[in-house]
């Protein structure tokens, strides 16, 4: 009796497996992977898309930009994702890998901008920083304070040491770990730019420059707080002297408790990031596999939903979630490129 039921169960299972293996050859929902920064925006669009059309809601995995490209470029076919989100542009090496695996035509869609903010609790007053201040406070090696043209281990303990006009509070910055796309962008947009302001660092050869500009100090003032921005916000509330580094959308959600610091005289507001006067902002993208359009149902319609004014426009629902829209002209440009599925060319 028991043996029979075991046999029956096994048989049923294998039939189910065979049946579903057949079903898997025709996937009917869009599969999206990629950046955790784009995830909160993409999920909102996906949900709207699922509700307002007859297509299934796309599935979105948050794998990070690099992990997303790896999955995306693995090949063409239903078992590979159709779209990958990225908080940076595709690299040449990733493009080559895509080509080598048969992913020939890729459509690049820029969706808008995300500002990176340096914020603190509203219990303290907002800081007026420059990128040079941030570099001097956070780099592992900084130019000798005595004026000699060499790098010394970072001696600064308080913001006042860095710049006399700043308060005498201890330097304590909570930020993302090196695996994060936010960290990459922060290093590139703030640290590197500031390092270029020192002629002797700028004159270094490429590798030395990178080492000087990209290395963040490890002696305590910079605290790697993990990828959970919620946690950073809570810690800022508990410690008014601390600063935190994260995406603008998080500042936007928590304006009741935290405030963005001025960077080079500009406060990170929606308008300042949109018109480009706030210096620390980066574009966000997603990439579409052209070979899947028309094979997986709904990709074309998802693209239309994403690139419509009510989604990514000035008053679109993505702007309510903290995405900074592109200027009108750029938006129209991408909209028509997406309509024509213009493939990305990288030489």
């Amino acid at each position: 009796m028991i043996r029979k039921s075991i046999l029956l169960a096994t048989a049923t299972f294998f039939m189910a497996t065979a049946g579903s293996a057949y079903a898997a050859s025709a996937r009917d929902n869009i599969s999206i992977v990629g950046s955790s920064t784009v995830y909160p925006f993409a999920t909102v669009v996906a949900e709207q898309f699922g509700k307002t059309t007859s297509f299934k809601t796309p599935k979105i995995e948050s794998t990070g930009s690099g992990g997303g490209f790896k999955l995306f470029c693995a090949g063409v076919g239903v078992e590979h994702p159709d779209i990958t989100n990225a908080s940076r542009a595709m690299k040449k090496s990733e493009y080559d890998k895509c080509q080598a695996n048969g992913v020939k035509e890729i459509v690049e869609v820029k969706i808008g901008y995300d500002g990176i903010v340096v914020a603190n609790s509203k219990k303290a007053s907002p800081l007026k920083l420059t990128r040079k201040d941030i570099f001097l406070a956070l780099a592992k090696n900084v130019p000798d304070p005595s004026g000699a043209e060499k790098l010394v281990p970072n001696p600064y303990k308080t913001w006042k040491d860095v710049n006399n006009s700043l308060p005498a509070a201890k330097i304590e910055v909570l930020g993302p770990p090196p695996t994060s796309g936010t960290r990459d962008a922060f290093v590139e947009l703030v640290m590197e730019e500031a390092a270029k302001g020192f002629p002797f660092i700028k004159a270094m050869d490429k590798n030395d420059f990178k080492a000087a500009a990209h290395t963040v100090r490890e002696d305590g003032p910079y605290v790697e707080a993990g990828e959970n921005d919620n946690l950073i916000v809570q810690k800022l509330n508990a410690n008014p002297d601390a600063l935190g580094i994260f995406g603008f959308s998080f500042l936007d959600q928590n304006t009741d408790t935290i405030q963005g610091s001025f960077v080079d005289g500009v406060q990170p507001t929606f308008e300042a990031i949109a018109d480009g006067s706030y210096p620390v902002s980066r574009p966000l993208f997603f990439y579409v596999k052209k070979a899947h359009v028309g094979v997986i149902p709904g990709i074309q319609e998802y693209l239309t939903e994403f690139t419509s004014e009510k989604t990514w426009g000035e008053d679109g629902y993505l702007s309510e979630k903290g995405l900074i829209p592109m200027p009108d002209q750029e938006r129209q440009q991408y909209q028509s490129d997406v309509k024509a599925l213009k493939p990305l060319m990288m030489k």
Binding site: S20, N29, K56, K59, I60, E61
Partner: peptide, 17 residues
Amino acid sequence: IGMVAFIVDIPGGLTDS
């Protein structure tokens, strides 16, 4: 294996996301 994902639709079978 990709089960940490944003999925709105309620799965109806063994191979649905």
